[in-house]
Amino acid sequence: MKRITIADVAQHAKVSKSTVSQYLNKRYDYMAENTKQRIEEAIKELDYRPNIVARSLKQKSTMTVGVIVANILHSFSTQVIRAIEDFCHLQDFHLIVCNADDDPEKEKRYIEMLRAKQVDGIIIFPTGDNVELYQEIVQSNYPIMFVDRLVPEVPIPSVMLDNEKAAGLAVQHFVEKGYERIGIITNVIRNVTPRMERINGYKKVLKENGLSINEDYIRKMQVSCVQEALHDMLSLDEPIQAVLAGNDLTLMEILKYVKKHRIRVPEDLAIIGIDDVSFANFYEPALTIVEQPAFEIGKKAAELLLNKIQKKDVEEELDVYRFEPTLIVRQSS
């Protein structure tokens, strides 16, 4: 079956190939309405599909960016992806989304795959363990941005939350409510930036309030072990009175344990989570949350990447773009 070309569309619509090209590229501000209509009808009647590969070779751009997310199950990750997609859509860029599962080898394969597909740039929630590969990308001047995490050895800009402040807001709220035995649970995979920074923020505010740091109240583990960790913290001679969940998946495990063991919130255990969850305001009791502006973070990452791709003259690039967290107080604390 013969492939329909732009020349066929032009002949069918009785216009030049350049006029069809202008229509396809949405450059038809000064094009007569009947001309636009004839081209549109020709495209439909012939079932014409633009050759994206040929166009990308001609324009030296695939109008596509890749996003490699560390764990797509996090609500924060999906919100950031949505914001990136929204911004890119307005610029006529498409997205390829990959889930690395916090696996450095999987992340490496996705980076190589996306570059082989000649995407114009990549946004990565980095595992941090592919330093040599990141450095190669930087040296080749390939457009790349990090989100949510830092890799200190590599000069790639990152867009992320002020994680120390996020944890600090939660701990300060606990202290002001009269709690002294405050715990934190977070799932740490290697030394991922947000988790370590949140623990640092937790410790910092405890010290500022004259409270001692009890290592038994600090737990870092896989999500599957969160309920066991909470059980241990509540079984201590001096059990925790309040707990900060380091992210949304940790919070959900804490809530499962609370429900299973009929623990009263906040009477028996006060709870605050970092990362907003969709059910926070109608859970019973409603959950106090430290919210990070995921959509603003995603939009900024997309904007910075497209500026790199399009080589726009912009203000001096920062190493890290930090966004402010917001404490939303409800009944769980």
Score class of each variant (00 low, 15 high):
residue 11 Q to S: 14
residue 37 Q to H: 07
residue 54 A to M: 05
residue 16 S to T: 13
residue 23 Y to M: 01
residue 13 A to V: 10
residue 12 H to F: 15
residue 28 Y to V: 10
residue 31 M to P: 15
residue 32 A to M: 07
residue 56 S to Y: 09
residue 37 Q to V: 03
residue 10 A to R: 11
residue 21 S to Q: 02
residue 8 D to A: 12
residue 28 Y to G: 10
residue 57 L to C: 07
residue 39 I to Y: 02
residue 15 V to P: 06
residue 43 I to Q: 12
residue 7 A to G: 08
residue 38 R to E: 06
residue 26 K to Y: 04
residue 26 K to I: 00
residue 30 Y to G: 06
residue 50 P to A: 10
residue 36 K to N: 07
residue 47 D to G: 09
residue 55 R to T: 04
residue 33 E to C: 01
residue 37 Q to A: 13
residue 38 R to D: 03
residue 27 R to Q: 06
residue 24 L to F: 00
residue 50 P to E: 10
residue 8 D to Q: 09
residue 12 H to P: 04
residue 57 L to H: 07
residue 55 R to G: 00
residue 6 I to D: 11
residue 20 V to F: 04
residue 38 R to T: 06
residue 53 V to F: 12
residue 33 E to Y: 05
residue 27 R to D: 03
residue 9 V to F: 06
residue 57 L to N: 08
residue 30 Y to S: 12
residue 22 Q to R: 11
residue 31 M to R: 04
residue 43 I to G: 12
residue 26 K to Q: 06
residue 12 H to W: 13
residue 33 E to N: 09
residue 57 L to A: 04
residue 27 R to V: 00
residue 58 K to N: 12
residue 23 Y to I: 02
residue 23 Y to A: 01
residue 7 A to P: 01
residue 14 K to M: 14
residue 27 R to I: 00
residue 11 Q to N: 14
residue 56 S to N: 08
residue 8 D to C: 09
residue 42 A to I: 10
residue 10 A to E: 10
residue 19 T to N: 02
residue 15 V to K: 06
residue 40 E to Q: 15
residue 55 R to L: 01
residue 20 V to P: 00
residue 29 D to V: 11
residue 54 A to F: 03
residue 49 R to Q: 15
residue 34 N to H: 09
residue 7 A to R: 15
residue 37 Q to C: 02
residue 13 A to H: 07
residue 34 N to C: 02
residue 49 R to F: 07
residue 32 A to Q: 12
residue 28 Y to A: 03
